[in-house]
Design a protein around this nucleic acid. Structure first.
Lengths: 133, 133
DNA sequence: ATGCAACTTCAAGTCAACTTGAGGTCAAGG
DNA sequence: CCTTGACCTCAAGTTGACTTGAAGTTGCAT
């Protein structure tokens, strides 16, 4: 299963412990997984890439086991991503400018200073989040 | 300084310990900082927002103390951000579609399944990074 | 003189998502 | 029969950026 899914064995055990996946039994020491677990792993990877935490992802699997995904939550996450994208885009543009900027010191470049101010404001009291990339 | 910069006192001490900032002395128990530290903090915040780690940021301050920022590094980071942005944009579009998708189950939606496949591929063996948001 | 808020130090804790290590078990191949 | 290697369990370690706690010190106002 580790080979099939590209997810390491330790990760599989970790996910099992977190109840994100379930093994259907053992043959000797080897866990047996049914093939649906592959889909589930893909779903987990997708959720992670979209910025959901494992705990959030766990909630997307109803007690039944089938994915029960709240469309509102998806839309909310999309909005969140959108905001993040805009921020990153601004940052990228700023970086590019700074990289090309002819001013002797970055501190003399107005664009750079504008970025600085934005950063100072943006993070004063801002929450931080981690996203998987 | 904590009030002035919006950075908590514990963080300031942490930064000092990490040699990202320096206090110029004490008056009693209170550290004294000179005003340049405010710029430095803004620079740190900017670096973080751009996805640099504190250690990377530390390298941007030459032994002299003035920012000595490598333009190539900035360009590289910009490219990195660009890739990230593209990934997130794709994800956002996928999420939006999934949120609006009329299929009874997400598993029946071709767009969703395409996303799934992409996620499964994208993360098989992918490195992970954290960025401050 | 004294109370007390705000600072100090230092070690340890937090979070997420895993990985690593120690010590053990098992099944198949030579 | 015995080695090999892939698995097992369980606890602890890793990373980054901080925060929290305990115990102590200080300056200012009353």
């Amino acid at each position: 299963m580790a080979r099939r899914s590209g997810v390491s064995a330790s990760t599989l055990r970790f996910y099992e412990e977190k109840r994100l996946i379930a093994s259907t039994g053992r043959r000797g020491l080897h866990r047996l997984f049914d093939p649906g677990v592959l889909d589930r792993l893909a779903l987990i990877a997708l959720g992670q890439a979209a910025g959901f935490s494992l705990d959030e992802i766990a909630l997307m699997f109803g007690p039944g086991g089938r994915p029960r995904i709240d469309r509102l939550m998806l839309a909310a996450k999309a909005d969140e991503l959108d905001a993040k994208i805009r921020k990153l885009s601004a940052m990228r543009d700023g970086l590019r400018h700074a990289a090309a900027c002819p001013a002797r010191s970055h501190m003399e470049c107005p664009t750079f200073r504008r970025l600085l101010r934005a950063a100072a404001f943006g993070t004063a009291g801002a929450r931080r989040k981690k996203i998987a990339v």
